[in-house]
């Protein structure tokens, strides 16, 4: 079974937020909310500075606390690619998952259910890339099967320096940032 993940090239990323906008239109994310976002980390003192720009979202963790804590089984690991999803019909909007996520990736949709990045599984199952990946003008985002050593993401992770977010949280995130 595939294990989907992303490798995002911080060297190319300019933080333009096209990924955020594309997610919003593709998934009709309600006004005032976004499923992905841009984080900018600046270190140093002017003018000797380093800046990392990252497109962030749900990490579709191998050990997802949001799934473990869900009282109704709405948060679950999908058969295809091990993507973490929410069954909106089962969700009661209790916010346990929102609190459990160390990445702040979830929010409660005004209709009352927990919402977050789905890796655009509806597109992936049609052979398309997630909207954020397909739109990125800098081609900094790569999506694929982390278990396939020949996939683009695996090749990039094998050949480039990279890090993930909050590895110490023990969630085994599946989004990696190339540096």
């Amino acid at each position: 079974m595939a294990r989907f993940g992303m490798a995002i090239d911080t060297v190319r990323c300019v933080g333009c937020m096209d990924c955020v906008v594309a997610c919003k239109t593709e998934n009709s994310v309600p006004e005032g909310f976004n499923r992905d976002w841009i984080a900018t980390e600046v270190t140093g003192t002017f003018p000797t500075l380093h800046m990392e720009i990252r497109s962030e979202r749900c990490n579709h963790c191998d050990s997802p606390p949001c799934v473990h804590c869900c009282p109704t089984g709405a948060s679950h690991v999908h058969d295809v690619g091990g993507v973490v999803l929410v069954d909106y019909d089962k969700c009661i909007g209790c916010k346990a998952c929102v609190a459990s996520c160390p990445y702040g990736a979830r929010f409660i949709n005004p209709s009352g259910y927990a919402e977050k990045c789905t890796f655009c599984i509806h597109r992936v199952e049609q052979g398309l890339l997630p909207a954020c990946v397909s739109v990125c003008p800098t081609h900094c985002m790569h999506f694929g099967d982390l278990d396939d050593p020949n996939s683009e993401v695996s090749q990039l992770l094998a050949s480039r320096n990279h890090h993930s977010l909050l590895p110490e949280a023990g969630t085994k995130p599946r989004i990696f940032y190339l540096t």
Partner: peptide, 23 residues
């Protein structure tokens, strides 16, 4: 109206719009 994406045969967008275009 649902969404708008780059036209893959367009030499300007090369199939990818910028965030303003996408929005």
């Amino acid at each position: 109206l649902w969404k708008i994406e780059g036209n893959p045969i367009d030499p300007l967008s090369r199939g990818r719009l910028c965030p303003r275009g996408t929005g």
